[in-house]
Write a protein that binds this DNA or RNA. Structure first.
Length: 550
RNA sequence: GCGCUCGUAGCUCAGCUGGAUAGAGCAGGGGACUUCUAAUCCCCGGGUCGCAGGUUCGAAUCCUGCCGGGCGCACCA
């Protein structure tokens, strides 16, 4: 019995009470089932009687009474009590709780998957860093969180495309090219140019492949350094992301929007539909209608498209590819874009709610409380590669995903490289490794799960807590997907690992010495298998490994 | 000035689409390994949930105002 099944029983009991005239209420679709903090309040509790009292026009305890009478007859329910103002506290039979391990083991990798998001095609755009330098910590946060969110949403049935928007048009790239050329010619960094050791490195690699390049006239030289430099930088970014276990389905080139005429097409479409207006020689988008501070220029008075023109064309392109939901993950310094992007959707006649913009706060790396600022290669910022060098991929991903993106993050290198339980990733992985070790021992002893077990034998408090934790996993994944908050999965895994460690400490699983395996041994092994499965499933959603040994 | 966001234990943070006595880890103190991984577990102390109003059976959670921190407010990209 899991909370969802219990909610069904509660709903059925209410419906029955209405049918035989005991109550007159509209039975809600969503029934709240809580896991009370104290077991004195039962295994589960529902405040539904409190919630329905007003519309029913009767005291909550009256509703609770009618509900309790019928719920007591439900299969798996051991006791139902009314408490306080009208809470209904529910105690389940031990076997009904214990049966959950079987459900988990049978579902296997699919446990926690559902279809709450099925039928929607999601374009998930994240990182999208300019290819003018290595990825830094802010990008790292989105690489980890975005990738995890994609996994979580896929687990709920969404068709997700991970997409990287590659800004390879515009003056930033020009400055990058000028910086490379200057470095190749041993000239100082140009004004507004890029510094950092990586510029010299890339410039040198361009020179290696094209020894004549630096000596060409400026125009031609810049063209070569621009094309080759961007390619090298972009390969490096892809490689960094791949190492970080974040791969994209689509790398979209902004340049292609301009060269293909997509920008012109999009702008003309908006002019035709009256979504743009002309003022002071420029064309403006009515973004104020969607919460923007001011309307935005799409075509500048010199006739050139402004940056947002590319966004408009890009959005149109996404829609033409059939996405029903476009998610953009941006840094806090870009929160001003929310209204703009929603206005873009509206301008093309789409519901602005089909555009979601997630804003992530900044990330700082600290060591012993002191900020770590300088990077070996990038000069002023810490790179994603630096982070991986310091923590490893597992800890780096986990550390970035574990916190709500709403909070500014200070990652302490000392904490995340520690191999103790103040390092959450080790704590969770250790639980998995412990379980794997246990199963190896069971195999050595020739103890097998068999076809089934007696769920009533999982009767200790620690087993009940662990089973309740396992039962809650599907709702955690569903909530993480719906709220776009993958950190919930990480927090859950820490709770689950804790529940397992407590169980392990309190209950002997395998027989000691020459003792024979009992039915209880087998039941506990089922519980262990189920726990390992959920730990593995959850870690997979985060893109973190589930080690067999540590 | 306007907008977004955060403010919960000494520290780092969960909890926020309203539910019972507000949680975890760390830090501090004290315990538990002859047999399944002690990278673990148990116990102790620790709080005006920034402040003030409001909504209601019930508010850390929702609304309003204020205080404090971060980030933004281009015919740049």
């Amino acid at each position: 019995m899991n909370p969802a099944q219990l909610a069904d029983e509660v709903r059925a009991a209410l419906t029955a009470a209405v049918a035989d005239g005991a109550l007159s209420v509209a039975v809600p679709d969503e029934i709240t089932i809580d896991r009370p903090r104290s077991r004195e309040h039962g295994d589960y509790a529902t405040p539904v009687a409190l919630q329905l009292a007003k519309q029913a026009g009767v005291p909550p305890r009256t509703i609770a009474q009618a509900l309790a009478e019928r719920l007591r007859a439900a299969p798996g329910v051991a006791a139902v009590e009314i408490a306080g103002p009208g809470f209904v506290n529910i105690r389940l039979e031990t076997a009904a709780i214990g049966a959950l391990a079987r459900d988990v083991v049978i579902a296997g990798e699919k446990y926690g998957s559902a279809s709450t998001l099925s039928g929607i095609a999601v374009n998930l755009e994240f990182v999208s860093a300019n290819p003018t330098g290595p990825l830094h910590l802010g990008h790292a946060r989105w690489a980890a969180v975005g990738d995890a969110l994609g996994r979580v949403m896929r687990a709920q049935g969404a068709a997700v495309t991970n997409e990287y928007y590659f800004n390879d048009a515009g003056v930033q790239i020009d400055r990058f090219a000028m910086s490379l050329l200057a470095a190749a010619r041993n000239q100082p960094v140009p004004e507004d140019g890029y510094g950092g050791a990586y510029i010299a490195e890339i410039a040198q690699r361009v020179v290696q492949d094209h020894p004549e390049a630096a000596g060409l006239p400026d125009d031609e030289a810049l063209r070569t350094f621009r094309t080759e430099g961007v390619q090298l930088m972009f390969d490096e970014i892809k490689s960094t992301l791949h190492t970080f276990r974040t791969d994209f389905d689509v790398y979209f080139h902004e340049d292609s929007l301009h060269s293909s005429g997509a920008v012109t097409t999009a702008v003309n479409k908006l002019k035709d539909s009256g979504s743009l207006y002309e003022k002071d020689g420029a064309w403006w988008l009515r973004s104020t209608e969607y919460g923007d501070d001011k309307d935005r220029v799409v075509i500048k008075s010199d006739g050139n498209p402004a940056y947002i023109a590319g966004d408009l064309a890009y959005f149109l392109d996404k829609r033409s590819r059939g996405f029903s939901l476009c998610i953009y993950m941006l840094g806090a310094d870009h929160h001003g874009y929310i209204a703009r992007l929603k206005a873009a959707a509206a301008a093309f006649g789409d519901d602005p709610d089909t555009v979601e913009v997630l804003i992530g706060q900044m990330v700082n790396l600290v060591r012993g409380g002191e900020p770590v600022r300088m990077s070996k290669r990038a000069g002023t910022v810490v790179t994603l590669d630096d982070l991986v060098d310091a923590l490893g991929v597992d800890a780096a991903r986990y550390a970035l995903i574990r916190y709500s993106v709403d909070t500014t993050l200070d990652l302490d290198i000392d904490v995340w490289t520690r191999q103790t339980n103040d390092n959450p990733v080790f704590y969770v992985q250790y639980a998995h490794a412990r379980l794997a070790s246990l199963e190896r021992h069971a195999a050595d002893l020739h103890i097998e799960l068999g076809d089934d077990y007696d769920p009533a034998l999982l009767d200790t408090a620690q087993e009940a807590e662990l089973l309740a934790l396992l039962a809650g996993y599907p709702q955690v994944v569903a909530a993480a997907a719906e709220l776009r908050e993958p950190h919930r999965v990480a927090r859950y895994l820490e709770d689950l690992a804790s529940g397992y460690h407590k169980f392990y400490d309190a209950v002997r699983i395998l027989p000691m010495g020459d003792e024979p395996a009992t039915d209880a041994t087998v039941a506990r092994l089922w519980l262990c298998r189920a726990t390992r499965q959920v730990l593995a499933n959850g870690l997979a959603l985060l893109g973190v490994t589930a080690p067999e040994r540590m």
